[in-house]
Amino acid sequence: MKHAWMVFVAAVLLAVGSGQASAQSAEAEVLFRDGKKLMAKGQYAEACLAFEGSFKKDPVATTLLNLADCREKNGQLASAWGHFVEAARLARGQGAIEKSAQDRADALEPKLSYLVVAVPNDVRVDGLVVKRDGVPMDPAEWNRKMPIDGGHHTIEARAPAHEPWSTSVEVGTSGDEKSLTVPAFRAMPLRTAPGTGMTGRRKLALGGWALGAVSLGGALAFELSARSSYDDAKAATTNPARRSAYDTANDRRLYAGVALGVGVAAVAAGTLLWITGRRAAPEAVEVQASVGRDMGGVTVRWDY
């Protein structure tokens, strides 16, 4: 019984997969025919899109061969050459198709244009990304003569904490060779407050000190008030009055402890901000304060 159930499930999955494959093949065939019609009309850009879509749905060598032919007629020689090479690989062992693709690739290779994007060792900062027409280049492609379609191309490079760089180059359709070099990166300048020349971190330091001064002043005021309430408790003549005075004193001492913790933390954070005001901003600053009736504590954590 179990074996029969497994056979049934496998049959269902096979039928579903077969149905999906059939649908993909049908869509691929429609796109392929549209590509042929558009090629006949000389609408090469649109035809190439149709062939490309057909190949994605049904990756066969004949479709890729037609896409390569389309790219060549559209003046995209490097793309065409790459497609011919790949079509020959896909058609390996298929005789005439493999030979046709390889012959076309061999005939096209001498006509290719090339671009060298030079990235010297002394400009390779951490996190460097070099893009060609918006697509990141593999570092293995740096400093190498790589085939490229003719036309206008944009090269850009970015690295953390450095100013971005970009340029453009015009490459001929056939037989052209261009080269460009990524220059040394400049570190991004520190941001300063307009008109003062003071870094943003030192402005925060001043704010921290101001908050610390207010908090410490409040702590002193609560402490003096708490001592006054303790004196009142000692002078009280009845237990209810004494207990009320002690409760008030304890509450005010608690408030004094909280204000003291906040004040110390703010002053400590402000001091760190001022001392390190010439460096890049920290990733995170965390200030924690814990105060109780019997104990208090302040924790400052500084992450870069």
Results as ranks from 00 to 15, higher is better:
His3Pro: 06
Met6Ser: 12
Phe8Trp: 13
Ala10Val: 08
Ala11Glu: 15
Leu13Trp: 03
Ala15Lys: 05
Ser18Met: 14
Gln20Pro: 01
Ala21Ile: 10
Ser22Trp: 11
Ala23Tyr: 14
Ala26Thr: 06
Glu27Cys: 02
Glu27Pro: 02
Val30Thr: 09
Phe32Gln: 01
Phe32Gly: 00
Arg33Asp: 13
Arg33Gln: 11
Asp34Phe: 05
Gly35Lys: 02
Lys36Val: 15
Leu38Tyr: 01
Lys41Arg: 14
Gly42Asn: 08
Gly42Thr: 01
Tyr44Phe: 15
Ala45Lys: 12
Gly53His: 01
Lys57Val: 03
Lys57Trp: 05
Ala61Tyr: 03
Thr62Glu: 08
Thr63His: 00
Leu64Gly: 04
Asn66Pro: 00
Glu72Thr: 02
Asn74Leu: 09
Ala78Arg: 02
Ser79Arg: 10
Trp81Leu: 09
His83Phe: 14
Ala88Tyr: 02
Gln94His: 13
Ile97Asp: 07
Glu98Gln: 12
Lys99Ile: 14
Gln102Arg: 13
Gln102Val: 11
Asp103Gly: 08
Arg104Met: 10
Leu115Pro: 02
Val117Asn: 03
Asn121Gln: 15
Arg124Pro: 04
Val125Cys: 11
Leu128Glu: 15
Lys131Met: 14
Arg132Gly: 10
Arg132Pro: 05
Asp133Ala: 10
Ala140Pro: 05
Ala140Arg: 09
Trp142His: 12
Asn143Thr: 11
Arg144Phe: 07
Lys145Ile: 03
Ile148Cys: 05
Asp149Gln: 05
His153Ser: 06
Thr154Trp: 02
Ile155Ala: 05
Glu156Cys: 02
Ala157Pro: 07
Ala157Trp: 04
Pro160Ala: 03
Pro160Trp: 01
Ala161Met: 15
Ala161Phe: 13
His162Ser: 01
Pro164Ile: 14
Trp165Lys: 09
Glu170Ala: 12
Glu170Asn: 13
Ser174Asp: 11
Asp176Gly: 04
Lys178Ser: 04
Ala187Cys: 06
Pro189His: 10
Thr192Leu: 15
Ala193Leu: 15
Ala193Gln: 07
Ala193Glu: 07
Thr196Gly: 09
Met198Pro: 01
Arg201Cys: 04
Arg202Ala: 07
Leu204Cys: 08
Gly207Ala: 14
Gly208Pro: 08
Trp209Lys: 05
Trp209Phe: 12
Trp209Val: 00
Gly217Cys: 07
Gly218Ile: 06
Gly218Cys: 13
Leu220Pro: 03
Phe222Lys: 02
Leu224Ser: 11
Ala226Gly: 07
Arg227Pro: 07
Ser229Glu: 06
Asp231Lys: 10
Asp232Phe: 00
Asp232Cys: 07
Lys234Trp: 14
Lys234Phe: 13
Ala236Phe: 12
Ala236Asp: 09
Tyr246Trp: 11
Asp247His: 13
Thr248Lys: 15
Thr248Glu: 11
Ala249His: 13
Asn250Lys: 11
Asp251Leu: 04
Leu254Met: 12
Gly257His: 05
Gly257Val: 06
Val262His: 00
Gly263Ser: 06
Val264Trp: 02
Val267Tyr: 00
Val267Glu: 03
Val267Asn: 03
Gly270Asp: 04
Trp274Val: 03
Thr276Ala: 12
Thr276Lys: 13
Thr276Cys: 09
Arg278Ser: 13
Arg278Tyr: 10
Arg279Tyr: 14
Ala280Asp: 14
Val285Trp: 08
Glu286Asn: 12
Ala289Glu: 00
Ala289Gly: 09
Ser290Lys: 12
Val291Pro: 03
Val291Ser: 07
Gly297Val: 11
